[in-house]
Amino acid sequence: MNAHAAARIAPLHENDPRSHDPVLEELVDFVGYRPNALLTMARKPGVVPALLQLLGVTLRGDGLLTQALRFLIAAEAARGARCRYTTTHLVHAAHHVGVDWDKLAALPSYRDDPRYTQQERKALAIATAGGSLPVREPGQAITQARQVFTEEEIVEIVSCVAMVGWFNRWNGLMGSELEPVPSEALAYVPWLQDLEV
Rank of each mutant, 00 (worst) to 15 (best):
N2D: 15
A3G: 05
A3N: 07
H4R: 10
E14Y: 03
N15C: 13
S19V: 12
S19G: 11
D21H: 13
V23I: 14
E25A: 15
E25I: 14
E26V: 14
L27C: 05
L27Q: 10
V28M: 08
G32D: 13
N36E: 12
A37I: 15
L38P: 00
L38C: 00
L39T: 07
L39N: 06
M41S: 11
M41C: 11
R43T: 01
K44C: 15
K44P: 04
K44A: 15
G46F: 04
V48E: 01
P49L: 15
A50Y: 02
L51M: 13
L52N: 01
L54Q: 02
L55Y: 04
G56E: 01
T58F: 08
T58W: 02
T58V: 10
L59Q: 07
T66P: 06
T66A: 10
Q67Y: 02
A68Y: 03
E76Q: 15
E76Y: 01
A78T: 10
A81K: 11
A81D: 13
R84K: 06
H89E: 08
L90D: 06
V91G: 01
A93S: 02
A93F: 05
H96S: 08
V99M: 13
D100H: 03
A106H: 04
A106V: 02
Y110E: 09
Y110P: 10
D113I: 08
Y116N: 08
T117L: 13
A125Y: 03
I126R: 05
I126V: 14
I126Y: 08
A127Q: 09
G130I: 15
G131Q: 09
G131R: 05
P134F: 15
E137H: 07
P138F: 09
Q140S: 13
A141Y: 02
I142H: 07
Q144M: 12
F149P: 00
F149Y: 14
T150P: 01
E151H: 05
E153P: 05
I154H: 02
I154T: 03
V158L: 09
S159H: 03
G165K: 14
N168T: 11
N171A: 12
G172P: 10
S176L: 01
S176Q: 00
V181E: 12
E184F: 04
A185M: 12
A187F: 09
A187R: 11
V189G: 00
V189A: 00
L192T: 06
Q193V: 13
Q193M: 14
L195T: 03
E196C: 02
